[in-house]
């Protein structure tokens, strides 16, 4: 009997091994994006924008044209790239510090303008790259290196729910929240990423897929425990769901 590979490295990923920590779900999301790009056959017209944060080196892992943005400015950079070549597919890949703290203005206005780009938003409730400080999405009570007594909302304010916020903008076409904790949720996240890219291809406006992700290293948990924490703690504060899906996007399904 002949045997055939039914699952291997997508063409839109390079062979490089990522620098991400063991069990970090950045790698899963990278692969999902690459699979979607392969399936839509858009690798040669897609341009990615990497953030500042753990995914700062994302451009090394995608076999695509890629730019590296200043912290938080990826949506502005994506706007510039897309406006001068609207036939291309442009996406940003941003973490919670990048998108929801320093880059809040850029993401909100890109969404509000209905900028025809896609943002893949990795929410892992912590600053990974700088070593585990409080993120805008750090949960109340969560211990980080800059909330050593747990996030006190009286002192540090409340976590920001990005998908809900972006869904209020008129220019957003598709805004959902997913997680990548087990094969079923991973499959759901992939479908969402695919629909976001399809919405952009159909010129329907701004799309954002928020993905609850794990940071075992900075959470001080094993990779498997970290996924449990995503499902039990993060998903409780950040409910999965479709926050805005305009009719034209629904019809793409």
């Amino acid at each position: 009997m002949e045997r055939k590979a039914v699952f291997a490295n997508p063409e839109a990923l390079t062979d490089d091994l990522t620098h991400y920590c063991p069990g970090c779900t950045h790698g899963i999301v990278h692969r999902l994006i690459a699979e979607v790009i392969d399936e839509l056959e858009i690798r040669e017209i897609t341009i990615g924008i990497a953030p500042v944060g753990c995914a700062v080196l994302a451009y090394n892992y995608f076999n695509l044209d890629f730019a590296e943005a200043a912290h938080g400015r990826a949506p502005a950079m994506a706007t510039g790239l897309k406006r001068v070549q609207p036939d291309k597919v442009v996406f940003t890949y941003q973490g919670d510090g990048d998108l929801a703290a320093i880059g809040t203005a850029e993401i909100v206005h890109a969404a509000s303008r209905g900028e025809n780009i896609t943002a893949i938003f990795i929410n892992n409730a912590i600053y990974g790259m700088t070593g585990g400080q409080m993120a805008p999405t750090t949960l109340p009570g969560q211990v980080t290196t800059s909330t050593p007594f747990g996030r006190d909302v009286k002192l540090a304010g409340y976590p920001l729910r990005v998908a809900e916020l972006i869904a209020t903008t008129s220019g957003a076409a598709y805004v959902v929240r997913r997680m990548v904790t087990k094969p079923a949720t991973i499959a759901s996240a992939k479908k969402a990423i695919k629909l976001a890219f399809q919405a952009q291809r159909a010129e329907l406006g701004f799309s954002l897929v928020e993905i609850l992700s794990s940071c075992p290293t900075n959470w001080g948990l094993s990779p498997l425990e970290a996924l449990e924490w995503v499902e039990e703690s993060m998903a409780a504060y950040y409910p999965l769901g479709d926050y805005k899906v305009i009719d034209e996007v629904k019809s793409l399904r």
Binding site: A67, G80, L81
Partner: peptide
């Protein structure tokens, strides 16, 4: 032409368009 939300955004839009060779 695009009116940005700030000078920060404007210069980074310039950066993006410049990366496209525009």
């Amino acid at each position: 032409f695009l009116q940005a939300e700030s000078e920060l955004a404007a210069i980074n839009m310039v950066y993006g368009a410049a990366c496209a060779g525009s």
